[in-house]
Design a binder for these strands. Structure first.
Length: 511
RNA sequence: GCUCAGUUCGUCUAGGGGUUAGGACGUAUCCCUUUCACGGAUAAAACACGGGUUCAAGUCCCGUACCGAGUACCA
């Protein structure tokens, strides 16, 4: 029987969780659930200098909103707790030491200044990529070059040191990526990466391999930016003797800016006018670091997830289905169908998805959104009227707030009239029609969409005016704008008195 | 620079040797309608380039170009 699938999403709490991170989490989740496996979240907080308070909470809330459920995490525990690397700190040194003892790693005492000096020296000597490696380490201060007693003395004196991986000089490192196939890298292209930092914390490379092994991770699904260091991780698995249980790798293609130049970054949200974060983010220490989120922009989570899932993945096999619920995504998902190329971000598709999902919602549900904006603007409205308005408008909205934005004229008598429409559509014929409608309307007791339509028809017929020529002017008089939902329905909701009032007002204001 | 990846309509993509290269978003036009939208229909729009392999290449191989990622005691 196959081993149970265990995947992890491993963000670092350095700020708001980027949309690309959400996608990585989503793919992990979809794969885990598809395989009947376990989804784990591990907080990678080994860099204390970049720690941001509140970031972890943000990650948690984001995933909750998306409906990505965690089987094991810092918040709900699990058999491999703790799930924060900072809390696992004591474990890592032993593994690093084991590497040192077995001759696969070594102590290094070089100061930042000395490292900098080495780089400038190498650059001056026209070395293309200065790195700490099999060649240069012979000239640095480490346990490979220093006498044994000197190393012991430095260690005992509490002098700061790091532990570096001793990368072999000539060796072919290969790994199989589930998305990209076989990848081969020569060890000379990898430098002697730091495994343990001088503050006693492991670097990502060590921590990730140790934790993935300990947590029995079977598949590592992560961003493309890790691909270049994946061979290094393979080397670590090898030195630890964990090759047999090494997870399978899948490196996801990056999300690019709409222009395609570089990956989508925090700043791009402002630049291109859309959010790059799932939730609104407020940085208490750095308010200008705050950002808008998809949730607050009015995207439903269903649309957000559907949109995100299709950024680099599709069900293939000739499927033309675009709308997928989380359950359907799980059912259809496979790593093999993830693309290799970077994806340019296009917010239009997200808007379209949102529109589709909003249409699927019931009028009652949508009316809730209308009430939110109504309350915020200190307006009251009867439930039945609000539902009628929602019903009328629901086909035209992209965001829930459009209900209020589009329907503002239901709640406020227009005080201004769209100058463009006034210019092109306001004329004597319209005024004649309006006067005729006003007269006929004042004789009515109450109106319905059908009755008012009939009324207008007969008035215009009597006056010898074609409907198409004046109706936009009539709309302007009643709503102040040139576009909107069915005008007859609109008038019926407004009621006879209000319609009359507005006609008179327009005649007075526009002359 | 070096290493590793990638390249089908403007965008997301289907396609796995033989297709009029399909769909979706967006765009345009038409229909519906009192207008705008919705809906329906139609259209414009792509295999980066050059070599091979093959009877046959978007599909396989090799170069070139371009694009991206990585190149930290960051993840």
């Amino acid at each position: 029987m196959e081993k149970q699938v265990r995947v992890r999403f491993a963000p670092s709490p350095t700020g708001a969780l980027h949309i690309g991170g959400v996608r990585t989490a989503l793919y992990n989740y979809l794969f885990a659930k598809k395989m009947g496996g376990i989804m784990i979240l591990r907080i990678e907080d080994t860099d204390q200098t970049r720690f941001v308070a509140g970031a972890e909470k943000y990650i948690q809330e984001s995933l909750e909103w998306c409906g990505i459920k965690l089987d094991e995490s810092p918040w709900n525990g699990g058999q491999h707790a703790p799930y924060r690397q900072s809390e696992r700190k004591p474990m890592y040194m032993a593994y690093a030491l084991r590497l040192v003892e077995e001759g696969n790693a070594y102590y290094a005492f070089d100061t930042p200044e000395e490292l900098e000096e080495m780089r400038t020296r190498l650059e001056a000597a026209k070395v293309v990529s200065p790195q700490y490696n099999a060649i240069t380490r012979t000239q640095m201060k480490n346990s490979l070059t220093l006498p044994e007693d000197e190393v012991k003395r430095r260690l005992a004196s509490g002098e700061p040191y790091v532990i570096r991986l001793k990368v072999p000089r000539k060796e072919e490192v290969r790994l199989q990526d589930m998305i990209r196939g076989w990848i081969m890298v020569h060890s000379s292209a990898i430098d002697d990466k730091v495994l343990m930092k001088s503050d006693g914390m492991p670097t990502y490379h060590l921590a990730n391999v140790v934790d993935d092994h300990l947590m029995e991770i079977t598949h590592v699904i992560r961003g493309d930016e890790w691909l270049p260091s994946a061979p290094l991780h393979v080397l670590l698995y090898k030195y630890f003797g964990w090759e047999d249980t090494m997870p399978q790798f899948a490196h996801l293609p990056v999300l690019l800016k709409p222009t395609g130049e570089g990956k989508l970054s925090k700043r791009d949200g402002d630049k291109f006018g859309f959010s790059v974060f799932p939730l609104q983010y407020h940085d208490p220490e750095n308010p200008q670091n705050s950002s808008s989120g998809f949730r607050e922009d009015g995207y439903t989570k269903e649309a957000f997830i559907n949109f995100l899932a299709f950024l680099g993945w599709n069900p293939g096999q000739g499927s033309q289905k675009e709308m997928f619920s989380m359950e359907e995504l799980i059912e259809a998902f496979s790593i093999e169908r993830i693309g290799k190329a970077g994806i340019k971000f296009d917010i239009n598709k997200a808007k379209w998805y949102n529109q589709q999902y909003l249409k699927l919602k019931s009028t009652t549900e949508l009316t809730e959104f209308l009430f939110i904006d109504l309350k915020a603007n200190h307006l009251v409205c009867e439930q039945s009227k609000a539902e009628k308005i929602t019903d009328l408008l629901k086909e035209r909205i992209v965001f829930p707030t459009d209900l209020y934005k589009e329907g503002i004229y239901f709640f406020k008598t227009p005080t201004t009239y769209d100058p463009e429409i006034v210019k092109s559509r306001w004329n004597d014929e319209v005024k004649t029609a309006l006067n005729g409608i006003k007269e006929a309307l004042s004789l009515e007791s109450e109106i319905t969409a059908a009755s008012v339509k009939e009324l207008i028809h007969s008035v215009l017929e009597k006056l010898g005016i074609k409907m198409g020529k004046v109706m936009q002017g009539v709309r302007l008089a009643i709503t102040g704008v040139g576009a909107g939902a069915d005008l007859m329905e609109t008038m019926a909701i407004l009621g006879k008195t209000e319609v009359l009032k507005r006609i008179e007002l327009s005649l007075k204001v526009l002359g």
